[in-house]
Simulated assay, not measured.
Amino acid sequence: MNAPIKLTDRKREAIVDAAIAAFRGSGFESTSMDKIAATAGVSKRTVYNHFPSKEALFAHILQQLWCSTSSLEDTPYDSTLPLREQLLQLLWKKMEMLKDAYFLDLARVAIAETIHSPARAHEMVARLSTKEEGLTRWLRAAQADGRLRAADPVLAAHLLQGQLKTFAFWPQVTLNQPPLDAATQVTVLETTVDMFLAYYGTPGGAA
C-alpha cells in the first residue's frame, strides 16, 4: 500500500504545475510569484517556503525536464546487438520527447530567457550540464568495446542529436511548425544513424 502524499508535497506539486502553466502561457518575465501562488491555491509565503525565487522555481522545472529527457535516453549499451539497431532505439526515444508539446513549450520559455537574460540562463544551463547524458555514456561504452572509433563522446553525442533537432526541434520551436509526420521521422532517424556510423563506425563494428 502506497503511503499517502503529504500536504506539503501536494502544495509543492501544485506550485510547480501552476508555474509550468504560467511560464508556458506568459513567459518568464511576465510571470509573477503572486500569479503562481493564486493559480496553485496557496499563499505567496508558501511558494517562497518551497522556492526562494522565481529563478529557482524555473531552474527546478528545467531540472525536471532534463531528468525526464535523460531517463528516456539512459539505455544501456549491449555488446551483443547491432549498433544501428541500438542507435535507432535511442534516437527514437529522443524523437518522442522532441515532438511532445509540453517539452516544446518549456523549451521556448527557456530559449526566450536565454535571449533576455544570458547570465541567468548560463547559470541554469551550467547546473543542468553537470549530469552526463545517457547517450554519451552509451557512446563511451561502444568506443570502449572497439565498435566506434576513438573520439570525444560528448561531441559525438551533440552531432548525433543535432541532426534530429535540425528537423524535429528548431523548426517547431522557432517557427511553430507541426511535428514531423511518421514517415519523415523514420527517414530522419535512419539517415542520421547511417551517416553517424559511416563516420564513427569501425570496420565490422556496426554488426
Rank of each mutant, 00 (worst) to 15 (best):
G146C: 07
F58H: 11
T136F: 02
K99D: 12
L180G: 03
T31V: 01
S32C: 00
D17C: 03
I36K: 05
V186W: 02
L159H: 09
F23C: 01
Y102N: 14
T191F: 05
W138D: 08
A37H: 07
T75P: 01
L155C: 06
W170A: 11
A22Q: 10
Q86P: 06
A121C: 02
N176F: 14
H60F: 09
T191P: 00
D194E: 12
V16A: 10
T174E: 13
M95H: 15
L57Q: 05
A19S: 07
K131I: 14
M97I: 15
F196R: 04
N176M: 14
T31C: 01
R108D: 12
Y102K: 15
T46N: 10
H50S: 11
A150C: 08
M124K: 01
L91W: 03
E73D: 11
D181N: 14
A126D: 11
G41F: 04
F58C: 07
H50K: 04
S26D: 05
T8V: 12
M97E: 14
R137W: 05
S32A: 00
P118E: 08
D78Q: 12
D17W: 02
R12H: 08
F167E: 14
T80Y: 00
E73L: 15
M1D: 13
R108G: 14
K165T: 10
D145E: 13
P76K: 00
T114N: 09
G205I: 02
A101S: 14
I115N: 03
A183H: 07
S79L: 15
L98M: 07
K94F: 07
A157K: 11
S129P: 04
A38C: 04
T166M: 14
A59K: 05
I15V: 08
T39P: 01
P171L: 10
D78T: 00
D105Y: 03
V154L: 09
L148P: 03
P118F: 07
L83H: 06
S79G: 13
G201K: 01
D105Q: 14
G204Q: 07
T8W: 09
S53T: 12
E123M: 09
A21L: 06
K11C: 06
L57A: 09
L62S: 11
Q185V: 07
V193K: 03
M124N: 09
A101E: 15
T114C: 12
I5H: 02
E55A: 13
G205C: 05
T187P: 00
V109M: 00
A119N: 03
D105W: 01
E190W: 00
D9G: 03
G146I: 09
D152V: 11
E73Q: 15
S68N: 07
V47C: 10
L197K: 08
A18G: 04
M195T: 12
A38N: 10
I36P: 02
L90I: 07
Q63V: 10
N49R: 10
G27T: 03
L98T: 05
G146M: 08
L135H: 03
D181F: 05
V16N: 06
Q63I: 06
